[in-house]
């Protein structure tokens, strides 16, 4: 694992599981730098991260998952890392797959998506989520002209070019940066690749998508993907 790799973990109230995730990362990627972006947690997430000796950036208040990611991108851009790997703090993403994500990144890919559907070791999400993921994966595949199976994955690898694009974006969504950001990367002419990664079900069943949020998510994401795709088509014609 190269020393110019940053492993970034956006976290919100994940004090209970973060230590385990960081320990696992330390085992598989001891040379990599690690950054935890605490999105205004109230449960001591930042203290847990500091206790593990990793870089910690704390939002003064809760800004959203997307904003936490963008803070990490800004951190990586300023520090000049060559590769950025992002994974979730809840333990769903197996750090053992970091090396799998890193391989295409080192070979020149700009965005590497860790797909749970390409791996036999991954859990199968509930059918409602599966339908949503498939729908957006189809839409994004159509928009970028390449088959993608898991566009809602939070397990990703990014090149400096993509990190810069997101870090400097004034329209990076603060809430759900998913399929729309993949279309944006394609629009910028960046190379996208998908690799199989192991994902576990969240033991507490926790997800960003609770209550009425899934409905809002679907509507917002549909609009965002269509908007990005229409800009993509225009830029292709131009």
């Amino acid at each position: 694992m190269a020393a110019d790799t940053l492993i970034m973990i956006p976290a919100f109230n994940e004090a209970r599981r973060l230590a385990e995730v960081l320990t696992a990362i330390g085992r598989v990627a001891p040379e990599a730098d690690v950054l935890v972006v605490d999105d205004g947690s109230g449960d001591g997430t930042a203290e847990v991260a500091r206790g593990q000796g990793v870089n910690v950036v704390v939002h003064p208040f809760n800004l959203g998952y997307g904003a936490a990611l963008q803070t990490g991108y800004r951190f990586a851009e300023r520090a000049g890392y060559r590769h950025l790997i992002q994974l979730d703090a809840d333990g769903q993403h197996d750090p053992a797959s970091i090396a799998t994500v890193l391989v295409p990144l080192a070979a020149g890919a700009d965005l590497v998506l860790g797909s749970r559907f390409r791996s036999a070791e991954s859990y199968s999400p509930p059918w409602t989520r599966r339908i949503g993921i498939r729908l957006f994966s189809r839409l994004a595949s159509l928009a970028v002209g390449q088959r993608l199976t898991d566009v809602t994955t939070g397990f990703q690898g990014l090149s400096p070019a993509l990190v810069r694009l997101h870090a400097e974006s004034r329209s990076f969504p603060a809430d759900y940066p998913d399929a729309n950001m993949i279309v944006r990367a394609a629009r910028a002419g960046l190379v996208i690749q998908e690799v199989p990664v192991a994902m576990r079900a969240n033991p507490e069943g926790g997800t960003l998508h609770v209550g009425l949020r899934p409905v809002l998510y679907v509507l917002k994401m549909l609009l965002a993907v269509l908007l990005e795709a229409s800009r993509f088509r225009r830029s292709r014609r131009g």
Binding site: L35, N55, V56, V58, A67, T71, R74, F75, R78, A79
Partner: peptide, 15 residues
């Protein structure tokens, strides 16, 4: 808010 967090988190000195 991101700038405040990055400054307090020592982003400039991280590497």
């Amino acid at each position: 808010a991101q700038e405040i967090a990055l400054l307090k988190g020592g982003a400039e000195q991280a590497r």
